[in-house]
């Protein structure tokens, strides 16, 4: 009988290695890719609608806002908008990155499954396991973004998602590591499964929104430098190879708006659980307080995006701030401040 707990630990190392390799491959595609591969998919085509007995109806679309048009000649063979099967070695590197991510994600699932079996419970009973679950959600969310063909082509940006994931996993495996143990009585509730899984999903998706938000800010800084006739300096210089700012902003909003109700639900599930475990649904325990702070910050983001003068750069900074508060909750509150949520398993 293999020791499943040890196997889980080894799989975690494998996962980190696979993700690191994927990150490098994404990075190569990013660094050496032509801008055209990026811009190509961003061009919107005119939609031709032909149906029934009517002659085809031509639907005209709003002209793409400035910035989303390709800035460099696209593939040598054809005009923008045509999908020319054009495979360069870099496409294979990018494909390899995705394959590595998928294999990594499967091993990642293995980490949690073996951990769960070894502990005889759901594998998110302490902070180590929670952080690992969050990372899996982020990777899956990233893969989902990749499968959406109509969106801006973003594959080469994978390095920006894998970097925080690899860092988080590394931190989890070292700073947060806890040996397998069953749940303490307070955590032995089905609300744990609901609350923690919702929190992990929301956190993972917020992470992707944070990543695209940072990319937006880089691209935006680059655009402003170009518009002012300045040479973009690092990190704005990275913006040259990023998709149009508008698309990144929209993706940031979509992803964050998707995560927000889940986060709201996670807090509510936590409150229901707290009512059963600690006699009150809300008690301003540090973990609750920071969950509230994150919630308010993300709510502020949704408002800012609907407020003239805040849309765009300022609003996206709020997303960055929101993610910072999530990290304070994950690391700061568990490691520095002690509260009722000292389930981290760290002594």
């Amino acid at each position: 009988m293999p020791d499943l707990a040890t196997l889980s630990d080894q799989l975690l190392i494998t996962t980190i290695l696979l993700y690191t390799a994927a990150m490098l491959a994404y990075g190569v595609e990013y660094a050496f890719g032509r801008r055209g591969t990026v811009a190509r998919a961003a061009v919107r085509e005119r939609v031709l609608v032909g149906a029934g007995g009517l002659p085809p109806v031509e639907v005209s679309l709003p002209s793409p806002p400035e910035g989303s048009l390709p800035e460099a000649p696209v593939s040598p063979g054809g005009p923008a908008g045509r999908t020319v099967p054009d495979r360069s070695p870099l496409d294979y590197v990018g494909g390899l990155a995705v394959v590595l991510t998928v294999i990594g994600a499967l091993v990642h699932v293995g980490v949690l499954v073996t951990r769960g079996i070894a502990a005889g419970r759901v594998p998110w009973g302490n902070m180590y396991e929670f952080a690992i679950s969050v990372c899996l959600i982020a990777v899956v969310a990233w893969l989902v973004v990749l499968t959406r063909p109509k969106r801006v082509a973003v594959r080469h940006l994978g390095a920006f998602v894998m970097l925080p994931v690899v860092l988080l996993l590394g931190l989890a495996g070292t700073v947060l590591y806890t040996r397998v143990a069953p749940l303490v009585p307070a955590l032995n509730s089905y609300w744990l499964k609901i609350h923690v899984s919702a929190a992990a999903i929301a956190t993972g998706v917020f992470l992707v929104g944070f990543a695209t938000g940072v990319l937006y800010l880089i691209r935006d800084a680059y655009d402003r430098a170009v518009a002012a006739g300045r040479v973009a300096r690092f990190p704005a210089s990275l913006g040259a190879r990023l998709p149009a700012a508008e698309g990144l902003e929209r993706t940031t909003f979509r992803v964050t708006a998707f995560a927000f109700p889940i986060w709201t639900f996670a807090i509510i599930a936590g409150a229901i659980w707290a009512e059963a475990a600690w006699s009150r649904y809300w008690g301003w325990d540090p973990k609750e307080t920071w969950a509230f702070i994150s919630w308010v910050v993300y709510a502020a983001y949704l408002h800012a995006r609907a407020t003239a003068g805040w849309r765009g750069r300022r609003a996206v900074w709020i997303v960055v701030l929101g993610w910072a508060t999530m990290m304070v909750n994950l690391f700061g509150v568990n490691l520095v401040i002690t509260g009722l949520h000292s389930y981290a398993g760290l002594q």
């Binding site: 509230f292 308010v296 502020a300 408002h303 401040i337």
Partner: peptide
Amino acid sequence: LFLLAVAAVPGS
């Protein structure tokens, strides 16, 4: 909303 978030920080 920002004020509310900031005001909650010392509480933790």
